[in-house]
Design a protein around this nucleic acid. Structure first.
Lengths: 259, 259
DNA sequence: GTAGGCGTCG
DNA sequence: CGACGCCTAC
């Protein structure tokens, strides 16, 4: 079973690339973030035409997440329960595997703007709510995978120029502490587990030729529950879509689960 | 010698189509309208790369005209003399031919919005200034051609559905009278001269599949001075660019001058 | 319907 | 830099 995550930065604009990518990479579940389209504008037909199903949570202009899958997802959950939020940042569904149900979550964690901003406070509250919810989910679903754009680079290895990023969002101590709390729930960073030394950047700023200079961050992650990690044989970043014509600033991360 | 006119509705967007069209149709002078780019953003390099020169008058967002030519134009005139106007709607230059100099003008006449609007008044004033200037120009340049988007359909033959257009801009009596005053200067409608019966639409609204239904207007014209008309052996509308992927709403008009 | 700007976001 | 919504223009 293959899972993947991709912040597409507008599904309307990126749909041809997503279709193309899925045909080249027929993963079982693709988690999307930043759909940037209202609930009723989701391009379900185009995805069904290539043999995929989908569940999604959209809103106009901002955010929006989806799960694109070969089989139908059940127990679909939009947003974090008990965390009232007009922003659509989470969708979860359960998929069948040979080893029983797998809970898959697509998450678009807040960006946080700047460490002294209201949006940073929201980011921290959001992570607290996520952690609280995940501790619950892990009770119900031992096989749990949460993939998405975390907007956190967990360590300096995940940052092209740690000096430059000091004191900025994505790397601040509070954000890294929030990340650690997720890990402490019994979740594992699949890419870092497989590649202890590879930076594995997943995002490059559109500006100043960041991709060309490989001036990136690793902020898109696949977190796996301990029982799932035992089945994880590979995790990789597919840099190629970042070199497309009209690219997203993020690129996909793929996890191979042998089950 | 071949002259042509094309309202491109953003040269930035249409540049590849213009390059392509010039390579298929290596006219001597191409008059462009609605560049929609500031003076310093004109894509001179791309045109030079295919062997063309250019003079232009740009402004941000709106209007803007150019003369793209194989040989250098001289006595370049931007705007109508003695008619102060921040809107860039006219550029003129002189080109050499076997029979002596030819004055070529690219004109983007005002749209006029609606017959009861301020913009309509401006349109009428603009035409008066144009007429005044052209009577002068004709004294200096017996071989004069003024090509462009006139935003006037001279007769009902130039309108797909004259009933529907009654009382609207492009066809109002005052606009047609302004057109007639240009004709009365000793200018001749090249297309209508060659094709007395062919509607020869040059513009189709982007909306409601107007091009598919051929619901167009003939509002782009080549006017020739009497001495030039004697050399005019053909005039045609090239509808093909209107069928392009991201088309302008206008399509080129080409004049063949045997000199 | 298809342009370009602006302001906002990331 | 490149999304979107809103505005204006044609």
């Amino acid at each position: 079973m293959k899972l993947a995550t991709w912040n597409v930065n507008s599904l309307r604009v990126r749909l041809p690339q997503v279709i193309d990518w899925l045909q080249q990479n027929p993963v079982d579940v693709l988690c999307l973030q930043e759909l940037k389209l209202p609930q009723d504008k989701f391009p379900l037909d185009a995805l069904q035409a290539i043999g995929y199903q989908a569940v999604w949570a959209g809103q106009p202009t901002y955010n929006g997440v989806a799960l694109i899958s070969k089989t139908e997802g059940t127990q679909v959950q939009r947003n974090i329960p008990h965390f009232e939020d007009p922003q659509q940042r989470v969708i979860a569904a359960t998929y069948d595997s040979a080893k029983g149900p797998i809970r898959v979550i697509s998450a678009y964690c807040p960006n946080g703007q700047a460490p002294d901003s209201d949006k940073y406070i929201y980011k921290m509250q959001w992570f607290a709510a996520l952690e609280n919810w995940l501790s619950d989910e892990l009770q119900h679903y031992p096989h749990l995978a949460i993939l998405g754009d975390y907007n956190v680079a967990p360590t300096d290895l995940d940052v092209h120029d740690p000096k430059k990023w000091e004191g900025k969002i994505h790397v601040s101590p509070a954000e890294r502490a929030a990340w650690q709390k997720l890990i402490d729930l019994g979740l594992h960073d699949a890419f870092r587990h497989i590649h202890p030394e590879d930076p594995g950047f997943t995002w490059w700023d559109y500006r100043r030729g960041a991709f060309r200079r490989n001036a990136g961050l690793r902020i898109d992650h696949a977190l796996l529950s301990t029982p799932l990690l035992t089945h994880c044989s590979d995790c990789l970043v597919d840099k190629s879509p970042r070199a497309n014509e009209q690219p997203s600033d993020h690129t996909p991360v793929i996890v191979q689960l042998d089950l």
